[in-house]
Design a protein around this nucleic acid. Sequence first.
DNA 1: AAATTATACAACCGCCGCATT
DNA 2: CAATGCGGCGGTTGTATAATT
Length: 249
Amino acid sequence: MEGSSLRVRKGAWTEEEDLLLKKCIEKYGEGKWHQVPARAGLNRCRKSCRLRWLNYLKPNIKRGHFAADEVDLIIRLHNLLGNRWSLIAGRLPGRTANDVKNYWNTHLLKKNIDTSSKTSNPKSHKLKPNTKVIKPRPQILSKRSFLVNLDEYNNNNNNNNNDRAETSNNVVLADCSDNHDGYCFLDHDEMMWWENMMMNEKEVDGHQLQCSANDIDQSVLDQIMNEDNYGNTMDELFLDEELWNVFNP
DNA sequence: AAATTATACAACCGCCGCATT
DNA sequence: CAATGCGGCGGTTGTATAATT
């Protein structure tokens, strides 16, 4: 419990501390944070040192206002990934996870607040009471299962718009066994999550998004719906291999 | 001009997954 | 297998500054 030590400094960093940390990293390189306080001669815990370096001192960190394209990308990636700030920041050169998170919380999150509630405290930044955060389950998602689920989901949707919940809480794959060996169940909320990823076009904070479905040509979507072609086209749903790996570790 | 309130963001805290012992 | 330590992450808080009353 390094944080409980009385000798460990907390709060804002001084220029002298910054200099010590910077010299230490330059000399020993990034990493081994548990050794950094001693090496640098700092009365700071390892986490404080790491955070200071990653969020402030590290070279090439971009400061100042977010450009429109950066904001657009944040919104799109947030739609895709949720509050996975480090991942989102990884797509924004020079921006840190903390920066992205702060920006989202101060500039974008308020767009999701229930403005109809007169009693809501704007400082609390709470989501609507009924807002449910949908998180994908990447560990059991396969290309094939996604496509089969999506196909089945769309069929259900087209055939009976009022019967989503009753259709089934779990969308069962045609040739699925519940043993997580490449096929899986996706419940309704997760299906909605995927649908949002695919069919997302909305205006947030004045930015007209060109998200997901707009980025994907209809012919590609048609191909995706064709199981024979799922192998290559699925990748086009993701920005690149790195994101694909996030969902398919 | 002073007091109050809102905003932005740096920093802390607790938790988690993983590796090592 | 359990305990421990580490790096890393997201949620939250503290506070300096800006805006408003």
